[in-house]
């Protein structure tokens, strides 16, 4: 069982999707996250164990390497793609209740901003870490965040902005959320965003990288 889980983690870490995928070159022709996940479930390993000791371990490793500038966006996207493939095998267990998500995370790029690479990366890492992610896309209005929050009480909201001008919109959204749902945890991120800015606008979490967000979320949840 351990070997299978380790293989899943390795495939996720290095972005090996399935036998046919050419990347990474040194794993060409070998099995990928797709096959190993299926095998693990067929061998009777608990789906929750597959998620936490296979997929999440791999995503955690790639997240740390990303933070340390050892890998970059293309490699992380390959890991996320491998993870999504593995996740397809696990989805039925989420629906049946055999696996429960850590929580719901509503994410979007704030209105006026049409940049989504960072937001997509964060969304993928969250999924790989066991979160139920609702991705509202780009250029998202304050009301859309609020409405989605209505339907998912207790969800965490994540706001992304790449432009200095749209950072101001972030401020507006945080204010409205805190006014309507003061208990909501709001996380912010994006190239121009800083901890200073986060403190100034009353957001709860800022992290320069997805891994930091995952850790902060775990801490906040633990504190709850």
């Amino acid at each position: 069982m351990d070997e299978l889980l380790e293989n899943i983690a390795t495939c996720i870490e290095f972005g090996k999707i399935n036998t046919g995928s050419p990347f990474p070159p040194d794993m060409r022709g070998k099995k990928g996250a797709d096959e190993y996940t299926r095998e693990a479930l067929d061998a009777g390993i608990n789906p929750h164990t597959v998620l936490t000791r296979g997929l999440m371990v791999g995503m955690d490793k790639v997240g740390k390497k990303f933070r340390e500038n050892k890998v970059f966006v293309p490699q992380v996207l390959m890991s996320a793609k491998a993870m999504n493939t593995a996740m397809e095998h696990l989805m039925p267990f989420f629906y049946s209740g055999d696996i429960s998500a850590k929580g719901t995370f509503i994410i979007g790029t704030v209105f006026g901003d049409l940049h989504d690479i960072g937001k997509n990366l964060v969304a993928m890492m969250l999924k790989g870490n066991g979160w139920n992610v609702i991705d509202l896309g780009m250029d998202v209005a304050t009301d859309t965040f609020l409405k989605t929050l209505e339907g998912h009480p207790g969800a965490v909201v994540g706001l992304s902005a790449l432009l200095t001008t749209t950072m101001a919109n972030m401020h507006q959204i945080v204010e409205r959320i805190k006014e309507k749902k003061p208990q909501t945890i709001v996380a912010i991120g994006g190239a121009p965003v800083t901890q200073d800015f986060c403190d100034k606008i009353g957001a709860d979490i800022y992290s320069p990288d997805p891994q930091g967000l995952l850790e902060d979320l775990d801490n906040k949840l633990f504190a709850r």
Binding site: P22, V73, P74, L77, M78, K81, I117
Partner: peptide, 8 residues
């Protein structure tokens, strides 16, 4: 952004 994965 698909180009990132196509690179690989």
């Amino acid at each position: 952004t698909n180009i990132f994965m196509q690179m690989m």
